[in-house]
Design a protein around this nucleic acid. Structure first.
Lengths: 67, 67
DNA sequence: ACGTGATATAATGTATACATTAGTTAATGA
DNA sequence: TCATTAACTAATGTATACATTATATCACGT
């Protein structure tokens, strides 16, 4: 379940740093999420990422983003 | 981010127990997920639930299931 | 020269998902 | 009577998300 965060950031012309500031997570853990080095995610963070990137969970997940 | 697992099970005429057996998680942790007592979820379990219930993450999450 | 955007790594601690083991209760069918 | 479906609870341990603190590098604008 790869997260397409970097792809979506690129589509929107925004930087990782921008999302990091918006989210308010520590950079360490933010970086792991964005670089797909995590095996799970808190619902509140998934929701926050969707809110900020103006998308839905399906858009974020590699295997569902075209469904 | 409430999970609509029980709603989807009811729509499909399946029991909690059926999903529990399909998933292979411990009943303790399965029950917490289904009863929305967890704050996060492993991607592999989210994927497995979607596979078994033949749905997408958006269908599972209360605030995205009509999007 | 200095602040800030942008990106990254390392160490340590806490919260929590999930596993394991061990029970309980009740309905149903062989 | 006994196995199976169906549902639930408690105790203990491990894996991992996330926080905190501390670094570092490089570009860019003032």
């Amino acid at each position: 379940m790869r997260l397409r965060i970097l792809d979506i950031l690129e589509e929107k012309g925004k930087t990782k740093y921008w999302l990091y500031i918006q989210l308010g997570l520590s950079y360490q853990n933010f970086n792991k999420i964005v670089n797909n080095e995590t095996k799970s995610i808190k619902f509140e963070n998934l929701k926050a990422i969707c809110d900020i990137l103006e998308c839905t969970p399906n858009d974020l997940f590699e295997e569902y983003h075209n469904k």
